[in-house]
Design a protein around this nucleic acid. Sequence first.
DNA 1: CAGTGGTCTAGACCACTCC
DNA 2: GAGTGGTCTAGACCACTGT
Lengths: 263, 263
Amino acid sequence: MNTLAPAPVPDSAASATTPLEAAPAPTAPLPLFAQIKARLRQDILEKRLTAGQKLPSEAKLQAAFGVSRITVRQALAELQTEGLIETFNGKGSFVTRPADAPRLGMLAGYHDFMRAHGRETGGRILSARTGPAPPHVARALRLPAGQPVSAVRTVRTANGIPVSYALLYYEPTQGRELLAERVHQEDAMTLLETELGFRLEFTQISATAVPAGRRHGVLLGVPADTPLLRMRFIPHDLTGQALIYAEVWFRPDQFTYRAVVRR
Amino acid sequence: MNTLAPAPVPDSAASATTPLEAAPAPTAPLPLFAQIKARLRQDILEKRLTAGQKLPSEAKLQAAFGVSRITVRQALAELQTEGLIETFNGKGSFVTRPADAPRLGMLAGYHDFMRAHGRETGGRILSARTGPAPPHVARALRLPAGQPVSAVRTVRTANGIPVSYALLYYEPTQGRELLAERVHQEDAMTLLETELGFRLEFTQISATAVPAGRRHGVLLGVPADTPLLRMRFIPHDLTGQALIYAEVWFRPDQFTYRAVVRR
DNA sequence: CAGTGGTCTAGACCACTCC
DNA sequence: GAGTGGTCTAGACCACTGT
């Protein structure tokens, strides 16, 4: 017997909606700890276990899944290195709040960075509408060409000076409409993690320099042909799905991109 | 008894040079697995175990340290998640060659990227001399102001077209002089990892856009005031020491910086 | 105090690699 | 087949957290 009983996720929370038999399992029956890990991960991603919530104790998991403690601990250990849970001696294991996890990409995010430097951040939304996705956006978001997407344009300021012009694309599903109301106040990545509850796994980043066009020059308050830093951010969740496509033009005299990268 | 016997690193390789008693251990005697891990890590960093080399088998480590297999495995597991070793079923554990480890920062490095796109990379060294460190460089490398550092200037080309102008600073110690002979052919980060055997842990990166000055314009073959992408890379080793300070100006029509960042 | 995770042991069986 | 890592069990003691 190498397959877990279809036991519900123990303790609190309903489940039953995800019988283990539905797993792939054509060839290799996953090791026990991997099955437990997959189950818990799914519970987290699908919000049956929500941010900050305490997981069942190791003893309870042990009993519920009918395995030894070491097996339970191996599952928890891997979830921990993946940053999905945190465990505290004497207290228990808890689903990480995404904001708790150290942010490696953009150092603490744009707004935090500005505030940390004593600059008042502001901004406004220039437009927010829905239309067919441009080809490169559709490709990045893995959507059929021409599929309708939301497009939001914003300008951000610091101490009243324009800093960036941003163009955001995303599928107009789930609670993502919130982006159109808040991106001028908070970082899109922060909103995705804290307000919308997505679990970011990795982000594709690119950077280049471009001369300010007429339109960007006016919006950012610089003469045409002034060098601008143009970056693209494409954050992905744990399943590899791209969540948004963001293209941002920065005034280099007002902002320098900084990051810390492992390896 | 909670302290490992001063057993030498078992199998091959001399050691004995690092008795465990020299450890901190004033208050909390590290857990056994942590002591084993520390010992192996040290052996790797100090080249008693070198890249690609096979570690003693779990059974041998078990016997050598006088602990149970699980304890050995916990040490190995953590070294693995830190990327210091790789293990293969049926073969053993091996010290990772830094180049094997997935490179998250610059996607596969500049030269690999160019070659992957079928472009012939070239370059030349403009100058290599030693002089007092500029203040911002001294600060980043944690050196006393004015301390002598090596400074290397290079230009890189792809298919004969200038792509970047780079300015590298580093302490002229150890084998690092090699940098002055090879940076025009290989990425500095790659040289540090593969040729010089450093273990990179994290890299500070910054990006901004600047107008090409007269000198940069001539070197890169673009008119003055053309926008350039200017990036700084400061790679650090496992101890947090900055290894080099690199400042690079890219022609944006020839190169876009791309990276994948966790979280 | 009870509950929780942190560490550790001594064994076991399996799958994989290489000779 | 011998050597190696991958998985798993049953039990133990400790340190920390809360009441």
